[in-house]
Amino acid sequence: MLAYTLRRFLALIPVLAGVSVIVFLFLHLIPGDPAEAMLGDRATAENAARLRTAYGLDQPWSVQYALYMGKVLQGDLGRSVRSSNPVSAELAQRFPATAELALAAMLLAIGIGVPAGIISATRRGSAFDHGSMVLALAGVSMPIFWLGLMLAWFFGVQLKWLPFSARLDTGTRYVPLTGLLVIDSIVRGDWGLLVQTVRHLALPAIALSTVPMAIIARMTRGAMLEVLQLDFVRTAHAKGLRDFSVIARHALKNAMLPVVTVIGLQVGALLSGAILTETIFSWPGIGRWIYESIQFRDYPVVQSMTLFVAAIVVVTNLLVDLSYAALDPRVRYR
């Protein structure tokens, strides 16, 4: 297992290097002079020259890349042109909001998608199967920004059941501990804060979870249908095991590999979906930050956040690969 893990880690290096080159080239995609583009109305010859020097834009590309990577490897993601703050500091401040939203959406997606897929597969052809698969198809066809707006309108504006903006009510005092409000409120035993947090989290998390939920449900159904036809399932039935036991202890375990893969793949979709969801629900995470940075032509932030999200995706893929080896020992010897 150790050799396998090491091999997978080493395979990560060229991919991350490639990712860093693409993200580095981002600034060079800007038509004209990147320094002037970033400064916009404030672009004077003097300011532009200063910015060019600060970002090393006056150096050859190879030197620029070496400088860039040198900084990135030390955790220096540059400075925001808009706020002048280090990107890494703002990232640390904003990431918990996105992490909490993405985790909540993922929990919803798995918590509903996996059981729905299992029930559909075991009751193939039933009304539940047809109904849930129609819903799943609608889910993958749903533009989440539209769903977000509709949820905000229906539950927020019409019914006034749930708030549809920000993480907390205006004026609520909160000193971050982990930055994850659900965890913080539980740790501090502040149940009022917990209820408020969950109420604010509900609509954006539902909007963000829809597409992954639909994909997970479809994949779970497909994988379960395949496994349920195999001989060992028939043997388990023939032994007289109860249906629940056959499904939970035998079939599900073997159907998990493709489901885990597709769950892993949803991490990237959740993080890019967060740009849309956070924009709609004024959620103070990195998604909304990327959106605002695009509006203000704060290119270093867009560049760094793309790198950050891609790195998370690459690491998640590695974890998924490693979980294969844990779920199925045959994988290690390939």
Binding site: I22, L29, I30, G268, L271, I275, T306, A310
Partner: peptide
């Protein structure tokens, strides 16, 4: 294929957003 692996490391929507944000 390694080049494709690198592009696949980016969530498609995010990469598209990045490219358009930079190009205008």
């Amino acid at each position: 294929m390694r080049l494709m692996d690198v592009v696949l490391a980016f969530p498609p929507t995010l990469l598209a957003i990045g490219i358009v944000a930079m190009r205008g």
